[in-house]
């Protein structure tokens, strides 16, 4: 059974989320093909060829694919995947942008944020901000699904490389074009795959105060996250938002500071292995999911924590 996996990358390096999607794909088929669609992306294809379990890397290198716009990538995915048992991508903003378009073109359903694969047509996925897990069964010939990467182990990187095949681009669409991108630069680990995440909420009070998290993050090698209230208030940029409508994380350790624990926030972090909450309100909902709760003023607790680590 062939499974087509859409590689997540920035034309320079393969994103680690691809490794988890490959693990999910291996539960659905034994012939895994990894599509690298991009521009000047030879290095990504090379990395992709070393992912354990991948039988073939398909690389489509063309300037029309430089920004992986859905209008350009979808026809390519259809061409390569319409005879596959499944087409999978990470439940990233890229995957979510692309796969529903692909599914509709194939006249099949799309299954979002798959957390578990029960059999080749039965999947578990979260609904209602993760407060309910739905088991759904698909009767479609091709299963098109995005994968919640935090729910699957990463495939290994191996020494031997599989075959890399070049494919031609499909469309010369002019409906949409890329204008610009602004990427937040950070030397910290990626939020989605970090071992430790420290996240701040409205309780931090200002963009300046938000830097109080830095010292602790430095000591722990942690990624920094935020609640929506902190993003809305402009303390940090939107790509740090954790939650139902932000990033879903499941690190070994999640430290929530000055976050009340709204269901939309919990949706993004409650599968973390160990949760610490620091909040001055003993009634805050975040304490209901915290393994270790500290009722304290964050302005004294954070410097103390940085010093104690």
């Amino acid at each position: 059974m062939k499974v087509l996996v859409i590689a997540e990358h920035d034309n320079i390096s393969l994103k680690s989320s691809t490794l988890q999607v490959v693990s999910a794909a291996r539960k659905l088929g034994n012939e895994i093909q990894l599509l690298v669609a991009g521009h000047d992306c030879a290095a990504v294809a090379e990395q992709a060829s070393h992912v354990e379990g991948v039988g073939r890397v398909l690389v489509c290198d063309h300037e029309s694919l430089a920004h992986q716009l859905a209008e350009a990538v979808a026809p390519l995915v259809i061409q390569l995947g319409s005879n596959a048992a499944a087409i999978l991508a990470a439940a990233s903003t890229n995957g979510k942008n692309l796969l529903p378009r692909v599914a509709a073109m194939l006249d099949v359903a799309q299954i979002s944020e798959v957390m578990a694969i029960i059999d080749a047509s039965t999947f578990v996925r979260p609904i209602y901000a993760g407060n309910v897990l739905a088991t759904v069964q698909s009767s479609d010939p091709v299963k098109v699904a995005t994968v919640r990467t935090s729910s699957f182990a990463a495939a290994q990187i191996v020494a031997e490389a599989c075959a890399v095949e070049t494919v031609e681009p499909r469309s010369s669409q002019t409906q949409s074009c890329f204008v610009s991108a602004s990427h937040s630069t950070s030397t910290r680990p990626e939020l989605g795959s970090a071992r430790v995440v420290i996240a701040g909420g409205r309780g931090l009070g200002s963009a300046e105060n938000f830097h109080l998290l830095d010292q602790v993050a430095d000591k722990l090698g942690a990624a920094i996250g935020a609640s929506r209230a902190a993003v809305d208030a402009g303390y940090v940029s939107n790509d740090l938002q954790v939650g139902q409508t932000g990033k879903i994380v499941a690190p070994e350790l999640y430290i929530a500071v000055g976050i009340s624990g709204a269901i939309q926030h919990l949706a993004g972090m409650k599968d973390s292995k160990v949760i610490v909450a620091i909040n001055k309100d003993p009634e805050a909902a975040i304490f209901q999911v915290a393994d270790y709760g500290l009722v304290a003023d964050l302005f004294t607790a954070l410097p103390e924590l940085a010093a104690a680590l």
Binding site: A109, T122, L133, A134, V136, L305, A308
Partner: peptide, 26 residues
């Protein structure tokens, strides 16, 4: 295209504890 087989509550987290100080937390 899809059949809802069943719905379930997510696995509950085991009850946590309160710590009295940063030292105890660490």
């Amino acid at each position: 295209h899809l059949k809802l087989v069943e719905v379930n509550d997510p696995p509950p987290r085991k009850a946590g504890v309160r710590v009295g100080s940063v030292q105890e937390l660490v």
